[in-house]
Write a protein that binds this DNA or RNA. Structure first.
Lengths: 248, 248
DNA sequence: GACACCATGATCGTATACGATTTCGTACAT
DNA sequence: ATGTACGAAATCGTATACGATCATGGTGTC
C-alpha cells in the first residue's frame, strides 16, 4: 500500500535536506510544501515535527520551521555524541559478527582505499557509512541502534552543505578501519572494540578541533589489555568542546 | 502566553504515562483524549507522534497508539543505553563542576542514605535522579544532554509500573556515589570519571540480569590509571542482552 | 463444531475553513 | 534621516467534516 501522506512528506523533506536542496536556514513553509506534494498542510506539519525531534529542523511557535543551521559547535557536538554511541554499538555488535560480515567490511575498506587514489570523496563518504553500518548493524540493543541512525542522519544533513574533510584524515581513517577489523577478527573483548571504534571517530573530531585551534575532546577511551600508553595521549584536564551559551 | 494545545496535550499524556495513570498497553484514543482536553484531535495527534519519537508510546498506522509496554528486554536496553550516555555526559561535565555542585551532590547522597533507614523508595528514586542530574547537568554537549534526559523519561515511565528494585542494590548504589564523588573531588581525568559513572549504572543493570539468570552486559569500562584489575571483572566473551527477534 | 466471509461500528488520515499571531512595509512624527 | 506606529499580508494553530481503513461480531457453509 502507498505510504501515508505524512510519511511521504517526511521522506521528501528529509531527502531535500540531506541532498542539500534545502540548505541550512531555508524557511520551510507548510503551505508551499503541501502544494508541492499535492496534499494539505496537516500531514506536512506532522512530518516537520518529526524532523524537529531528530534535530534536522528548528521550529518556532507561530513562526515556522527552518532547516537547522550548522553552527560548527553543533556539528562537533553531534560528532562527539556519535563517537560515544557508535563505539558502544560496535562493541555490542562485535560478538555477533560472523566471518562474512568481517570480509564484507574488509572489502569495503579496500574500496575506500581505491577512492583515495581516484579522489572520489562522494563515494568515499558513502562507503564509510556502509563500512560502519556493517559493523554496528548486529548490535542487539535496538535503542542504541536507533540513536546511532539518527546521529548519522544529522551528520549527513550537515556535512553535505557546510564542511569539507580534513586533508590527511581520509587516509588515516582507512588505516584505523583495518586496525579495528584486526581487533574484531582476533575476537577482542568488547571494551577493546569500543575503545578502537570510539577513538576512530574521536580522532576525526579532534582533527577538526585542531584546525580550529581548540583543545581535543576529553572522551578518549584507554585500550585495555594492550599497551595503555599509546591509547591515552596525554591527559588534558582542561575541558574541550565547551558549548556556546544558549542564545538568550 | 498559554502553551499551545498540542503542548498541553503532550504534557498531559506524558504526565499520565509516567505517573502510571495510563499503564503499558493502554490504548490512547485520539478522540477521547481530545474530549478530555476540550480540543480537537489534531493537536492530540501531534502530541502522540512526539511521544512516539521518544519511545513512550507505540504507534501503528490506522490502528492507533498504545502506551509502550515494557518488555523486560526493552527496560534493560534502555538502562544499557543510559549507562553509556550518562557516563559520557558525566565525564564531560566533570571539569565544569565546582565545589558547590560536589557539596550539593554529597548532601543528596547523605539524604539517600537516610532513606535507606526509613525505607522510603519513592523518595530514594527522586533523590537518585537529582543526584545524577547535578553531576551531568553542566555537560557542555547539549545533544548528549538531551538524549540522557529522554532516557530518564523512558525509565520513569517504565519503572513506576513494572519493576521493583533489586534488594541489596540501593545500599551499594549509595556507596558507589561516594566513590564517584571522591574521584570528582580529586580532579580525576574524564576517562576515569566516565568509567565510574558508567559502571555504576551497569552494576544496576547487571543486578537485574543476574536475578534473571542472564550474562552481564559486556560494556564495562576499565578504570585507567588506577589498578585495572578490579574494574574489569572477568571478560565474558559471550554476548549479553541479546535482543529479542523483531516481532514478525 | 470450526472456519471463512461479510456487515457494522469504531477509529484513523486528511482536506478544508477560519481565527490567531507574527512579520514586514509604509506613513508619519521627531 | 531615523525611529515609531499602524495596517496589511503571510503564515501558523486548530476546529470541523468526511472518506479510508481496520477490528469485531454475526452468519452461512463445510
Amino acid at each position: 500500500m502507498a505510504p501515508s501522506k505524512s510519511e511521504q512528506a517526511y521522506e521528501l523533506i528529509q531527502d531535500k535536506i540531506v541532498s542539500g536542496a534545502y540548505s541550512p536556514g531555508y524557511r520551510l513553509v507548510l503551505g508551499s510544501i503541501a502544494a508541492e506534494l499535492g496534499c494539505s498542510t496537516v500531514p506536512v506539519r506532522e512530518a516537520i515535527r518529526r524532523l524537529e525531534a531528530e534535530g534536522l529542523v528548528a521550529f518556532e511557535r507561530n513562526v515556522g520551521a527552518t532547516v537547522a543551521s550548522v553552527d560548527a559547535t553543533l556539528y562537533l557536538h553531534t560528532l562527539q555524541t556519535l563517537s560515544v554511541l557508535e563505539g558502544a554499538a560496535t562493541a555490542l555488535a562485535a560478538p555477533l559478527l560472523d566471518a562474512d560480515d568481517l570480509a564484507a567490511a574488509r572489502r569495503i575498506n579496500r574500496d575506500m582505499e581505491s577512492c583515495l587514489e581516484h579522489f572520489d570523496p562522494q563515494r568515499f563518504s558513502r562507503l564509510n557509512v556502509a563500512f560502519h553500518e556493517r559493523l554496528y548493524g548486529p548490535c542487539p540493543n535496538p535503542h542504541i541502534l536507533d540513536l546511532v541512525q539518527r546521529g548519522w542522519n544529522r551528520m549527513r544533513a550537515m556535512r553535505s552543505s557546510t564542511f569539507a574533510t580534513v586533508p590527511g584524515r581520509a587516509r588515516e581513517s582507512v588505516a584505523e578501519h583495518d586496525v579495528l577489523l584486526d581487533l574484531l577478527e582476533a575476537g577482542a573483548p568488547p571494551p577493546s572494540v569500543e575503545a578502537a571504534a570510539r577513538d576512530h571517530r574521536t580522532n576525526t573530531l579532534n582533527a577538526y578541533l585542531a584546525v580550529a585551534g581548540l583543545p581535543p575532546s576529553p572522551l578518549y577511551l584507554p585500550l585495555p589489555g594492550t599497551s595503555p600508553t599509546d591509547a591515552t595521549p596525554d591527559q588534558t584536564p582542561e575541558p574541550a568542546l565547551r558549548g556556546r551559551k544558549d542564545t538568550p
